[in-house]
Every structure is written in C-alpha cells, then in structure tokens.
Amino acid sequence: MTTTLQPLVRPGPPLDPDEVERYSRHLLLPEIGIMGQRRLKNARVLVIGAGGLGSPVLLYLAAAGVGTIGVVDDDRVEPSNLQRQIVHGVEDIWRLKVDSARDSLASINPLVHVETHPIRLTVDNAIALFGQYDLVIDGADNFATRYLVSDTAAVTGKPCVWGSILRFGAQVSVFWSGHGPTYRDLYPDAPPPESAPSCGEAGVLGMLCGVAGSMMAAEAVKLITGAGRSLLGRLSIFDLADATWRELTVLPDPARRLVAPSDGQEDSCVVAPHDPDEISVPELCEALHDRSAGSRSFALIDVREPYEHASARIPGSLSEPLSRLRTAGIALDTPRERLLVVYCKVGPRARAAAEILRAAGHPDVRVLTGGFDEWQARTGDPSV
C-alpha cells in the first residue's frame, strides 16, 4: 500500500499579488508551489473540535491559506482551556469556541472563510456535514465522537486526519477507507468508559497539543496538495517526556465491514441520561437540608482533583479524587451501609468513582446528575 497519494483538491483560481506575497514561502517549495497553493485556496476542511488539538490545526490551516475551514464544537471557552487551547484568549472566556476561533483566524488571515457549526456532532447531522467538505480533521476528546467521525468518513469516502493526546504522549495518523485503514482497523472497539482516564482527570502538557496539532495540519496540507508521504497506513507515536518517536504500520482489516455511523458508544465527556443510581440537583438540595436538620445522614464526595475542590465546591462535600481512588484505593472512613453521593464537573468521573466504590463494598452510591456545573447553573451558588 503506497502512502504517496494524488492531490485531493483541484487547483482554484489564480493567486492575486497579495496572495503571492503572503504565501511566498510555500511557493518556494517545489512540492507545493503555485499549483499547490491554488489547491489549498480551493480546499474545504472540516475540523472537529476547537480545543487542544483543534487550536493549532485551525491556526496553521488559516495561515497556510486553506480557502474554507469548518469548525464543529458546541462548547464554550473556560479558564482551564487557556493552558493549551491557543486559538482562544482571556477575552474569549465563556464565548462559544467556534466564535472565538473564527475571530482568531480572521485576525491571522482574512482571506480564509470560516464556517462555524456550534453543534454536537451526531449520527443525525454527521453525513450531511461531511458531504460539504473535502477532508475531515478529528480533534475530538472522546471515544464516541472518534468512532462517529471514522464511520462517517468511511461512508462518505472522506480522508480523516486523526490525533489523540494524553499527559505527555500523542498519536497521529491518517485514515481513509478504500485507500488504507480506518480508525476501526487500529482500535476496533471502544474501551469501557471507566477503564480510561476521563477528560479532566489525566491532564496534558500544553505544548503536546502544539506538536500533535501541527503534524495534523501538515498531513491535511499534504493530502490537499499531494506533497510528501502521507501517514496513511502509519501511526506516529511520540512521548515528549522522553523525547522519543516511534512508528507502527497499520493495515486495513480485509474482513472489516463498513460500519454505519452510530452514536451508540457512550460519550465519556457528556452527561448520561438520568437513571435510578443518580440524584438530581433539587433532590440533593433537599437531602442537604435534611442533613443539616439532623434527619438524614449521607456523605457527599467530590471526586474532582484537589485544586478543583479548593477552587469551588458544593458546601459540605469531602474531597476524594478519582485519580487517587484508581491508584491508592479508598481512604473513606464511613460505614459501608451509609449512602454516598458523588459528583465531579459534569458526571463521567463520578460514574467511574461510583463503580469503584460499589466494587469496594459500598452498595448505596448515587451520582449527581450534571455534576458541579449543573449545581452552579441551578442554584447560582459559586460555593468558593
């Protein structure tokens, strides 16, 4: 299987003098030149996520002169994003990420057209959305979206540039059904949500996003122009802590059947529907009132990291981070028959903690629906 591919996009209109000046360093490269830059000008690229990976991808695509860039993200900028999501600034906090990204790209290259999609990618909108673009770049931070992106790209015949980051390590590859492997050839099935660190639990070195995102943007440019050797069929793995790089070959599974897009996988970064093992914010408010009156007894446990608990918390909660539960076991000094109510930021860490607590012999564990974010939204209590 060759990884040298024909250019994905036909050349666009001739460059005007301003474009020749702006992209002069590209034009000096024989692998890109005038025709390659015209292909970039004519390209339409969809970026999934305007977060850690999406930020450098978007910035470099705009700087490179990709004519139309689509951005899919339904989230808002939070202060903790600024450590790594460099497309956003302090003045963008609580703005929609797609709006913040659009304005940043306009300040870098006003010749680029940015299409914002402030939505969550779902099985209902993915195929129609992918059909509007030449290629897709997957900067998602959860397994459900990654599989949805891969399956939709396979059905629509679009190449997909993919990256993943965790702590100090990253992986980057290119998937393209019919030309090489897909994400399902590398990872056929998603792991159970409780088996992998969640979005806010593991941490990530900010600069790692820049390294991986720059590689992803470069792969997109190579696909569009036909320059260089694509990562299609290869997985690049690098560890910034040890400054090591290695590569694995990924082959398409001949027995693999085309999988229709499905959002059936549990999204580890969103809130699951209410179930009997959950407790709503109004129910918790009532329970806390009863506990203050002495008519009810339970333990309220914050499984976020200590710095999160110190910054803002539900009054009367104890700090027992999920990361410590996973590695050091349970340090709770509470009767096994006592009710435990656990919460995190939005829910996934709390659900994983609940499973650990139940396995350790605490039968009555309930998860706060929507987590601390829902508590703040409903009560208006900053609880700092």
Rank of each mutant, 00 (worst) to 15 (best):
A140D: 06
E194L: 07
T3L: 10
T369M: 10
S195P: 01
D263P: 00
G33D: 09
D75V: 08
L235D: 12
E283S: 07
E91K: 08
N109T: 07
R120V: 05
I86H: 03
V114S: 03
A331G: 15
E278F: 06
S230D: 06
V172T: 13
V66L: 10
A217I: 09
E283Y: 07
P30M: 10
S268Y: 04
R120W: 02
L105C: 02
A190L: 09
G36D: 05
P335C: 02
G49W: 06
V20P: 01
A144C: 10
P17Q: 11
A170E: 07
D253I: 03
L8I: 11
L288Y: 04
R234D: 03
M215G: 00
V47L: 11
V281C: 15
G316P: 07
A287T: 14
G54E: 11
K41T: 08
V9G: 07
A128F: 00
A64E: 00
G70T: 12
C285W: 02
G200R: 01
M35F: 00
Y23G: 11
P315E: 09
A255G: 14
N42R: 14
V114L: 00
R25S: 08
P348S: 04
L82Q: 09
P254N: 12
A62W: 04
G33Q: 14
L40S: 03
S195L: 02
V77W: 05
G12C: 13
I93P: 11
A190K: 04
P30Y: 05
E374N: 14
G70W: 05
L208K: 11
E337K: 09
M1S: 05
A43Q: 06
C199I: 06
I279C: 13
Y187C: 08
P282R: 12
A377N: 15
V47T: 12
S236M: 15
V174M: 01
D381Y: 04
D124C: 03
S55W: 05
G36S: 04
P261T: 12
I279P: 01
R76S: 08
I108N: 00
E219I: 15
P348F: 02
L135E: 11
A144E: 09
V136P: 14
E266M: 01
S317D: 10
I165P: 04
V270A: 12
R336V: 07
L332F: 05
D364L: 08
T3G: 08
T3V: 00
G370W: 06
W162E: 02
V161P: 00
T4C: 03
G157F: 07
S195A: 15
F168P: 01
L223M: 10
F372C: 05
A170G: 13
T244G: 02
R38N: 01
D138L: 14
P192D: 14
L148R: 09
Q265T: 09
V270P: 00
G131S: 14
V149I: 10
I137M: 10
R84L: 01
G264I: 15
A154T: 06
R184F: 12
L235N: 09
L232M: 13
D364C: 05
A350Y: 07
M207S: 15
W94Q: 09
R120N: 00
R246A: 02
L27F: 11
P254T: 10
M35T: 15
G233K: 10
P11R: 06
E247C: 07
L59K: 07
D16A: 11
